[in-house]
Design a protein around this nucleic acid. Structure first.
Lengths: 217, 217
DNA sequence: CCGCCCGCAATTTGATCATATTATGACGCT
DNA sequence: AGCGTCATAATATGATCAAATTGCGGGCGG
């Protein structure tokens, strides 16, 4: 009973490990992901690794490389256009749903995360920024109580991860500005539409940076 | 045997088998899906079955039932609202993208599928209707050449599958009307926006039937 | 005579299976 | 009714089989 809560299964651990690596840019696009490599790295057997890889490919975080091998997918302009379309449709909706349910305590939590985020920016800690930014968005979206849109959004972020890696190498953290304050103020005011707009603007800034960087006008 | 050389891997076969069952209503919401049951049914070992189940849960077609059991997810009004939102955002977009790339031959193929669909309706063949309807939408969407929105749409349809089963038991095929003709005419005319509108109207009809049936006004 | 290309073998990697281990849920006993 | 034991189903491992890529060597052409 308690042990099931404290001991997540091996495939879950492996899944989270690879997922975080992709999400925060530790793996580069096109990089091959092999079963045996993960077996050696994680110290578990093949079956849990296979399951983790299967799950990640189903989520679009990994991609079949034709002959039963998988790799981190490469981004193209067409794919990027689809990603931004989907995120622009879904995430403001989640923010709106979340705003209608957010308690004062929830908002305080978001405030704390945003403080940690700004601290990471001041320190030039790119990885920390990415982690806190992810945490901010998904604790907000999590308030929506969604079972459909939230998992979809997770897959969309998974495809973005490898991109940020490339960008963060070129830009620093000093150029990173966000609309989180606007979102929090909208939450405090109980204005769901305004919160959705803030999130829309926030992610649009991220899109713009990527587009600029890759010359995708 | 030797025939296994050219065949797709076992986990893929098992995946498709369960997927089709869910998609076309052979499994009812809440129904438990056990590994050993599939082992017995498919005549393969546990590993491929585990992978197929893992993939389907990642796609939302199956759901963890608390303690390491999985079942076909039950539909709620809140989930349904999210599903319709997502489908209403994405599928017209796919139709629009497809319309810009559709060749005359592509349109003929869709025409043929729609003819088969209408034939199934005339015969009162609910299963055949569902199959051809799925084929119509996804051959159309497939023309868009999408790598992001198309897989997402597949997961959305997977969550709809169990619902249609319930409905088709109450209604017959005679009440089934669609906007496929409008979509095909729009494709022939090269009018992408009109095609998107036809698809939007088509799926909205499906939503309305479900809502009516479950009393989700 | 040197360099390139094609084909074969060896190694690496993936896929499947049979089995042991562990947790869960149910039944029976006190 | 509460607790312990048993049966069942899931998790994880290691071994085995099949496939693909890599690297090497011989043949061909310049």
């Amino acid at each position: 009973m308690l042990s099931s809560l404290n001991n997540p299964p091996a495939h879950e651990i492996v899944y989270r490990q690879i997922r975080d690596k992709i999400l925060f840019g530790d793996l580069t696009p096109g990089q091959a992901v092999t079963i045996q490599g993960l077996v050696a790295e994680c110290g578990v057997s093949m079956t849990p690794v296979r399951e983790a890889i299967r799950r990640l490919t189903a989520e679009g975080a990994l991609e079949f490389q034709g002959n039963r091998r998988v790799c981190v997918p490469r981004m193209t302009e067409a794919r990027f256009a689809e990603l931004t379309f989907a995120r622009d449709m879904i995430e403001p909706k989640l923010a709106e749903m979340a705003a209608k349910k957010a308690s004062a305590q929830d908002i305080d939590t978001l405030r704390a995360i945003d403080d940690a985020l700004n601290a990471a920016i001041d320190l030039g800690d790119v990885k920390g920024y990415m982690r806190e930014n992810h945490r901010f968005h998904f604790t907000l979206y999590g308030l929506a109580g969604s079972n459909i849109l939230l998992p979809i959004t997770e897959t969309l972020w998974l495809r973005f991860g490898p991109l940020y890696r490339i960008i963060s190498g070129k830009y620093g953290t000093e150029s990173l500005i966000d609309r989180h304050d606007e979102a929090i103020h909208a939450l405090r005011a109980g204005n769901a539409t305004l919160c959705a707009d803030a999130i829309r603007a926030d992610i649009a800034q991220g899109f713009a940076i990527v587009r600029e960087n890759f010359g995708w006008a």
